[in-house]
């Protein structure tokens, strides 16, 4: 049974979270499989919420399932497509079922007693221009964020510079790690995903291996990045986004030497 995430944050250990994605539909088989596989390996699982504005099985329902199966869970709330009644109602319900919460700055602020959340938020350290992101990052911390899971980072020297700045705040930072699965996938992200920038040398490294070996290469790269973040104590932990390949997360942790 994993510890409550609030305790994990306070423990000083290198934190590992990952994602599980609810299905588009009601077939929960694969989702359940991923939860079972990860619940004793990571410190908490984020249940993604209508990612990319695509309607899916809700994060809150997925969170209940994680709790039932004995995992620790982080409720993601995409604030964009729901009104405040829905957002706050979800928070009350989540609180009643003792689900921790990850929200953006609106989440929780208007709740009047009776709930206790461990609030998290996101930041995009590779955004360009960066300063507006940092201004908002500070607002989120002022609004009570206790931990931050970042958008994917690939350039760790650049991320280190971000951490030099972020260290002045009392907040735990989990670096976002996206599993690269092929060179075209990396190029696709560079072109289409805002705030994600895969450096050319990593794309070249992915392209250097024969087809059929690229996933292993991606695992190696993710593991190598996590190991450096851990060994050089650059940040407080990682948030692994395997994007549909959740069953690979334990392999990434192995490659990082985290078991």
């Amino acid at each position: 049974m994993p510890s409550p995430f609030k305790d994990v944050l306070a423990s000083g250990k290198f934190i590992v979270t990952s994602e599980v994605a609810p299905p588009k539909g009601t077939n929960l088989k694969k989702f359940k499989h991923h939860i079972e596989l990860l619940k004793d390996k990571v410190d908490a699982m984020n249940v993604t919420d209508h990612q990319s504005s695509v309607m899916r099985f809700p994060s809150l329902g997925g969170c209940l399932l994680v709790k039932e199966l004995g995992g620790e869970v982080i409720l993601q709330m995409t604030c964009r497509d729901r009104n405040r009644l829905a957002l706050q109602g979800d928070l009350l319900f989540a609180s009643s079922r003792r689900i921790m919460e990850k929200g953006k700055d609106l989440g929780g602020n208007e709740l009047d007693g009776g709930v206790s959340f461990c609030a998290g938020a996101i930041v995009t350290p590779e955004a360009d221009p960066l300063e507006p992101q940092l201004i908002k990052f500070e607002k989120k911390i002022d609004a009570g964020a206790e931990f931050i899971q970042t958008q994917a980072v690939f350039n760790l020297d650049k991320f280190k510079a971000f951490m030099d700045y972020a260290r002045q705040f009392n907040v735990k930072i989990l670096a976002g790690i996206i599993l690269l699965t092929s060179a075209p996938m990396a190029r696709f992200m560079n072109k289409n995903i805002a705030g994600v920038s895969v450096p050319q040398d990593l794309i070249d490294e992915m392209a250097s291996v024969p087809k059929g070996q690229t996933l292993n290469k991606g695992i190696e790269i993710a593991g190598r990045m996590i190991k450096r973040l851990h060994d050089e104590k650059i940040c407080d932990g990682v948030h692994i986004m395997a994007i549909g390949k959740e069953d690979i997360v334990p392999d990434i942790m192995n490659a990082a030497g985290l078991n």
């Binding site: 995009t124 507006p132 607002k139």
Partner: peptide, 18 residues
């Protein structure tokens, strides 16, 4: 696009919107 009043979201993209 989201009508945010406290700063940009993570979808800000080199001065454009995702």
């Amino acid at each position: 696009h989201k009508g945010l009043v406290n700063g940009p979201c993570g979808g800000t993209n080199h001065g454009k919107c995702e």
